[in-house]
Design a protein around this nucleic acid. Structure first.
Length: 263
DNA sequence: ATGGTTGAGGTTCAA
């Protein structure tokens, strides 16, 4: 089973790029974040025509929004609101009666990495804590699950262009990295991408729109992740990041992350 | 210390 996660930053604007991605990479499951579309604005028919008729979509006006698109039948298992907000940051589905896929869009967290001064950062930390509490209480690490999404945190030193210069920059601060570690390791999740691509190797999935030349400056971060539970760890066959997508015309600032599982 | 760019929706906010 090939799973792809991509923060598409507007599914309506970038629909042609998504259809090209599906044709080229042929995933079984595509998880999108930042679709920025209400459910009735989501281009469901276009994806169905492209071979992905099985869909679980959560959307809101203008912001956020997540979707799971599948070649094979899926069953919606959860579409949860976190932190008491109906802001379309999570959807989960079981694929073909087997693996459950959780698709998350974690809050970005604003600019100031202090929850007392910045309510967006407080929201981000609360969201991570609630993810941990809810998954811990409602799911078992012995169940075959995949967790993907734009988690808006680059945990490793090699997940950012400069560990030292980003220690105080939201996405790489110790408090966030710690919270992500508690969620991941504490609940038995394993980073499928880093199981294939060694942690020593620098790896990014996002490059800012604000650079004059994203490729030349290469100030990226790995914000997009694919995790699996223990029953799937030995089945992770391959992982890659489609860096070329950042150079596409009308590119998203994030690129697709691809993981293959031998199920 | 600040700015740089993009997207949605509506003359600004979020990333």
């Amino acid at each position: 089973m090939r799973v792809v996660t991509w923060n598409i930053n507007s599914v309506r604007l970038r629909l042609p790029r998504a259809l090209e991605l599906l044709a080229a990479v042929k995933p079984d499951v595509l998880c999108l974040q930042e679709t920025k579309a209400l459910a009735d604005q989501f281009p469901a028919a276009d994806f169905a025509e492209a071979g992905y008729p099985h869909q679980a979509v959560a959307g809101m006006k203008g912001y956020n929004g997540v979707a799971i698109l599948s070649r094979r039948p899926i069953e919606l298992t959860e579409q949860r609101d976190f932190c008491g907000k109906t802001d379309a940051r999570h959807v989960a589905a079981r694929v073909d009666g087997g693996v459950e896929v959780h698709n998350f869009y974690v809050p970005s967290g604003g600019d100031v990495p202090d929850p007392a001064k910045n309510e967006k950062f407080a929201h981000k930390l609360d969201f991570l804590a609630e993810m941990r509490d809810w998954l811990g209480a409602n799911r078992a690490s012995t169940d075959p699950m995949v967790l993907v999404g734009d988690l808006n945190i680059a945990p490793l030193d090699t997940d950012v262009w400069s560990h030292k210069q980003l220690l105080d920059v939201v996405s790489h601060t110790p408090v966030e990295v710690e919270a992500l570690g508690v969620l991941q390791g504490g609940l038995g999740w394993v980073d499928a991408v880093r199981a294939i691509i060694p942690p020593e190797q620098t790896l990014f999935s996002w490059w800012s729109y604000r650079a004059r030349d994203w490729e030349a400056s290469n100030r990226g971060r790995r914000l997009d992740h694919v995790w699996v539970t223990e029953p799937l760890v030995a089945k992770v066959a391959d992982a890659s990041i489609l860096k070329a997508a950042r150079g596409w015309e009308k590119a998203s600032d994030h690129v697709p992350v691809i993981v293959d599982l031998n199920l």
